[in-house]
Design a protein around this nucleic acid. Sequence first.
DNA 1: GAAAATTACTTGCAAAAAACAAGTAATATG
DNA 2: CATATTACTTGTTTTTTGCAAGTAATTTTC
Lengths: 147, 147
Amino acid sequence: MTKKAKAPWIGCPVRYAAGVFGDKWSFVILRDVLLHGKRYYGEFLASDEGIATNVLANRLQRLEDSEMLTRHIDQHKRSKVCYMPTPKSRALLPAFLGMMVWSAEHDECTEAPRSFIQAFRDNPKETVAWYEAEIDRVNLAVQSQIV
Amino acid sequence: MTKKAKAPWIGCPVRYAAGVFGDKWSFVILRDVLLHGKRYYGEFLASDEGIATNVLANRLQRLEDSEMLTRHIDQHKRSKVCYMPTPKSRALLPAFLGMMVWSAEHDECTEAPRSFIQAFRDNPKETVAWYEAEIDRVNLAVQSQIV
DNA sequence: GAAAATTACTTGCAAAAAACAAGTAATATG
DNA sequence: CATATTACTTGTTTTTTGCAAGTAATTTTC
């Protein structure tokens, strides 16, 4: 009797997504990078959710390994480390915003503004483009620091 | 000096989503319900990923608590238990499919057919509707069992 | 109608991961 | 040169997971 071989966390698209960001802290970090303009270790650490520093370090490493983030030393203050979103993580924006709309509609205590939900439903592409532009703006401001 | 109060896992839409299904096994269970037509405890247990029975029981309970699934005794064979998707979990389909497209585009080993990706990009609403119809079909077949 | 088989869990224990607290190393500041 | 920042690492406790076995309610088989 052979034991059932476990599937690796690739292949199936749901399994793959779960492998890359299928845990609470990865969700939160990606939110901070993609939506809140955060780029620095200290900024992630300061999030409301209160991630532990060792867990943060672990998740940043994983996200770097899966090419969701790239790590850079800040050249103006070389004790700071900057994590930049990659095209791969940016490509998650549409799904991410879709998920947020779902949350906004099903969480009684949601803090998401109704205007955001409306905007995404009316014109998802434009809403995604707006967030993309935000990311570019933050990147530009930070990019001058890291090379 | 007061300690930082942790945010509850509601309010912020990303945090809310992370709280409801932000772990590997919830992803997999929701996939099985929404996309693979699974409804019974034994079916979930048999998934390729090999979830442990205690973890499965725990996740089904959580998903029931957060109103993603409803639990029913099969009336034709009362030792079987059926878990049905709610409107709330079904409403996650668009975001879920968006996530799958992302995976398909970034996982070199993806098993997702190119036709699915194309279909969703060309006409997401229609693709969602197709999956909704699939869910209805499975529900109908199973509903005759559970009352 | 009793015995065996299904089915959905529960329990106990070992291993892994997360939370918490403290420490360290590189750089920057005064 | 001493102190402060910043990004981690290390050690320890607590929680969660994984695995194996057990149980209870049916259902099927003989």
